[in-house]
Each structure stands twice: as C-alpha cells, then as structure tokens.
C-alpha cells in the first residue's frame, strides 16, 4: 500500500471515530430531550416521543451501517458478499412486525379480561343467599 494511501486511511479512521462519537452524543441528547430533561414538559406530547424515537432508531441504523461499511470493510467487498450477508437480515423485518403485534395482543388479551370484568352486572343478587324467600325480580 502506498504511503499516502496509508496516511489517508488513518485519517479516515479518525474521522470515523468523530462521526460515531458525534452521532452517539446526538442520540443521547435526543433521547433526553424526548424524556423532557432538556426542556421540561415536552414529554407530555406523545408525538415528541415518537419523533425522538424515530430519530434515534434512524441514527442507530446509520451507526450500524457505518460500522459495517467502514470498520468492517464491507464497502471494499464485492457486491455478492455484501448481498449474501445483508439481505438475510431482511428476513427479520416480518419477524419484528409479527412479534410486536403479538406483544401488543398479549397486552390486549390481559386487558380484555379486566374490561369484561368491569362491565356493569346484569343482576345484583346471587342465588341461594339466605333462607329468606325472595324472587330475583323483587330485588333487581
């Protein structure tokens, strides 16, 4: 490898360090902002939390891509290798959707029992309560 190339490569590595560091800081900042640490009260707006979350996820994916492409030298591999490693990851997309929908459904199922239990009762008095003779209609 030629000398200048080497120098250039080293420089790029340190630029990479800077990029990752800055992104991490931004992530932490956005996360804290979303939780209302920087400006009090923003966390009460749900959309702020969602936007912050989307931003953080986006930045994390960029970080991941950066690590794979620069540090792991994926950029310098042939397209076939890149595809063979990265495409299978797409199989997880449906898994993520399905698992999350499931998780939500578990919550819903537990909740449903509560909702049904809290519905107003149709008749108040249980049968066979006392020896006293009464009919259900009397006591509604």
């Amino acid at each position: 490898m030629a000398h200048e190339n080497h120098e250039k490569a080293i420089k790029q590595v340190y630029i990479g360090l800077g990029i990752l560091a800055v992104i991490t800081l931004i992530e932490v900042g956005v996360s804290l902002f979303g939780k209302g640490h920087i400006i009090d009260g923003v966390e009460s707006n749900t959309w702020v939390i969602y936007i912050a979350a989307l931003l953080i996820i986006g930045l994390s994916l960029y970080k991941a891509k950066f690590i794979i492409y620069e540090f792991m030298h994926m950029r310098y591999e042939v397209p076939g290798l890149i595809r063979s490693v990265l495409l299978p990851v797409l199989l997880l997309v449906w898994a993520i959707i399905a698992f999350f929908l499931e998780g939500d459904y578990w919550k819903e199922k537990r909740n449903k029992v509560k909702v049904r239990n809290e519905m107003p009762a149709e008749k108040l008095v249980p049968q066979g309560m006392l020896d006293y003779e009464w009919s259900k209609e009397d006591l509604q």
Binding site: L92, A95, I96, G103, D104, W106, N111
Partner: peptide, 21 residues
C-alpha cells in the same frame, strides 16, 4: 435479533416499562 425481538415483544406486552433515564 432473537433476544432483542423477544425483548420488544415483552416490552410491548407490559402495561408500563421503567424509563431508562
């Protein structure tokens, strides 16, 4: 991914989740 997706599913299924900060 298996772990993290399982984490996501369990987190979504919980009514509350501790705030990390």
């Amino acid at each position: 991914s298996g772990f993290l997706i399982a984490y996501g599913a369990l987190r979504i299924s919980s009514p509350t989740w501790p705030v990390p900060d």
